[in-house]
């Protein structure tokens, strides 16, 4: 599947924890219906990657993470030709968001090990990727890869290459990007805080009412 900021138990955990997988088969990952994050150190960069569930029913949470993201990794199942249209729509929605437009996007055309997987060029075409990223002024790179091959240092080279690209693009324009992110994040935090206070107040009132009923 595809995600904002990344799928995947698979390549992320494998990168980070070679050997931990042990006898657990790579086929054996539970779908993410939630949130996890992984911290990586990559050369001079300290990176946090949010892994968000890509399933239809949880996709709505993505937008909550746009403000603080410096870039997007979109993981595409290149072998699932039937869902390319859905992928395209989901990706369009992400890039349409004012909190994402203009940020760099890495597309991982994953599952290349599968027979019948679309090539890089075909993925670009099915997603109308060029048009999409141009419209939203997102710098973009696509890497064909396989997340189930190799572990740790031996992780698929294309994935590494893609991540390097993303990190260097972010670093190149860091100050401007960072300013934008600080601004957007502060705004969102303030909004969340306000919501939180309002809820606390509403719940306090409900509790009070109930308490006074009990003592009636």
């Amino acid at each position: 599947m595809f995600n904002l900021m990344a799928n995947c138990c698979n390549w992320l955990k494998r990168w980070q924890e070679p050997g931990v997988m042990g006898d657990e088969s790579p086929e054996d990952v539970a779908p993410t219906v939630g949130f996890s994050k992984i911290d990586l150190k990559q050369g001079r960069f300290e990176v946090t990657i949010f892994d968000l569930g890509g399933g239809k029913r949880i996709r709505n949470i993505w937008r909550n993470y746009y403000a603080e993201s410096y870039g997007v990794i979109f993981v595409v199942d290149s072998s699932d030709i039937e869902r390319m249209e859905e992928t395209k729509q989901a990706m369009t929605e992400v890039l349409n968001s004012p909190k994402i437009s203009g940020k760099p996007v890495l597309v991982l055309a994953n599952k290349q090990d599968r027979e019948g997987a679309l090539s890089e060029a075909d993925v670009i075409e099915s997603l109308s990727l060029e048009k999409l990223v141009n419209e939203h002024k997102c710098l973009c790179q696509i890497e064909p890869c396989s997340a189930v091959m190799g572990c740790g240092k031996k992780i698929d080279k294309s994935i590494k290459k893609g991540l390097y690209w993303l990190l260097h693009i972010i670093a190149k324009d860091f100050d401007a990007l960072n300013e934008r992110i600080q601004r957007d994040t502060t705004e969102q935090k303030a909004y969340e805080e306000q919501k939180k206070r309002e809820r606390a107040e509403r719940v306090r009132r409900i509790r009070e009412e109930r308490y006074s009923l009990c003592n009636f």
């Binding site: 539970a30 993410t32 219906v33 939630g34 949130f35 996890s36 994050k37 029913r57 949880i58 996709r59 709505n60 949470i61 909550n64 993470y65 969340e192 919501k195 939180k196 809820r199």
Partner: peptide, 19 residues
């Protein structure tokens, strides 16, 4: 589930993994 995730503001839980 997604509606409940929103209702609980689960996205504000950044310091732990959640499902």
């Amino acid at each position: 589930a997604a509606e409940i995730a929103e209702g609980l503001s689960l996205h504000t839980y950044r310091d732990r993994e959640w499902q």
